[in-house]
Design a protein around this nucleic acid. Structure first.
Lengths: 229, 229
DNA sequence: GTCTATACACAGATAGAC
DNA sequence: GTCTATCTGTGTATAGAC
């Protein structure tokens, strides 16, 4: 499976993230017509990502957001209760979406090696498809309150545990070498993260997501497999 | 060389970063007595790191800084011209310090493999010794102005080129396999970065810097070496 | 050198007209 | 639903006493 195939498989499911946010936060949103609400929410999120990519969320003023979306200050407050809540909403929904997608697309394959490949591919491809969400989730996690930050840590441990489990299965089956699987999982996560944290570097070097992913897989497999090809 | 040895070797050189900042920015600093100036600068930097680790630089107010340092608002402005300049000073000096240290401690060894090991070790050990500086440099790079950001990119490319060169030498000598050395260098950098970006994770798992470094080296070597041990 | 008191700009948020 | 006008807090920065 390459990125194009993944993208098609994902978008065919027809999950609309802005719509989901609208439905789940309806009590806090005073807009009644779903269509306009969803359309404007999309405008708002995309504006937030584009502004905060350069200056960070704290430095983004509501006036910045107003200018970028073309909506007035007053109108914005009909879509979320305040700036802090906007941050929390994006973070929470971003995590939920990522978690759900990872679980859907890493459904058990035939063997540990295929499982590992699927897990790594899915994560990187997903981070390509939702790059702004991944970048935002990582860079703005600091601005969350303690309780919300706990969710970030839980998420990190969840995805790490997913990898560790696969590695252990592989060792049991005899296809992976033994080792500190938790540390190996951390290494894999670091490599995945590189793709969305330093995207500008790869754009510049003209390295695409497929090439990058294959390289990561090659490195991980050579390290993990009992017999190197 | 383990971390303890590196730390000793480094500190024995007696380079005082706060003192250097004082000397190089003397025109902008109105304090005349070197001793008090350097002592207070150290207090200021350590306060900046501790506050921004949790909320980021933009969210840190001058009043926060005043409280944490125990100095008054007015006194702070005797040490730097403004908040933006404080950011620029820390970033610039942090980069200069890192670059200088990397060059000093990765002096040419006998062969490419030893060179590679030294380069990786030095980078991780240095990021352990100056963790706040590394973390700050990465996380607050966005808040720099275009011209200053160019320096960040140049630095990234500089350290990457250093690794790429070693890998090429190794291929020429026949000890390293052939491959996309630029991509390999990127992977190595991602693994090094993991150490200071997710330090809390390893503190929690009780994994020390030596163990982490050895694991990175094992992974890189298994990938790069012609013959795996 | 360091303090307190204060100037002044800009932030987030709301009220009420349309 | 969306706008303009405005309230109120907080931010950076400075002046001038000590």
């Amino acid at each position: 499976m390459d990125y194009a195939a993944f993208k098609k498989a994902y978008t065919d499911r027809g999950v609309d993230i802005a719509r989901r946010i609208y439905l789940e936060n309806q009590p806090a949103i005073s807009i009644k017509k779903e269509k306009t609400a969803v359309a404007n929410l999309e405008k708002i999120f995309s504006a937030v990502f584009s502004i905060t990519y350069k200056k960070g969320f704290q430095a983004m003023s509501m006036r910045d957001l107003s200018t970028k979306t073309g909506m007035s200050l007053g109108a914005l407050y009909a879509y979320f209760p305040g700036k802090k809540q906007l941050l929390a909403i994006i973070q929470a929904q971003g995590r939920a979406m990522i978690k759900e997608a990872l679980e859907t697309f890493t459904a058990e394959a035939q063997n540990p090696l295929e499982n590992l490949r699927a897990a790594i591919r899915t994560h990187i491809f997903l981070s390509e498809l939702f790059r702004p969400w991944f970048y935002f989730t990582f860079m703005e996690a600091r601005n969350l309150r303690a309780g919300e930050f706990e969710a970030v840590r839980a998420m990190e441990e969840h995805t790490q545990a997913l990898l560790t489990r696969i590695l252990k299965q592989g060792e049991a089956t005899g296809v992976f070498r033994q080792g500190n699987h938790d540390l190996t999982a951390s290494m894999i996560k670091a490599l995945q993260q590189e793709w969305y944290l330093k995207r500008w570097k790869y754009t510049r070097q003209k390295i695409g997501v497929d090439e990058f992913t294959d390289y990561v897989l090659a490195m991980v497999e050579r390290f993990c497999l009992v017999e190197s090809t």
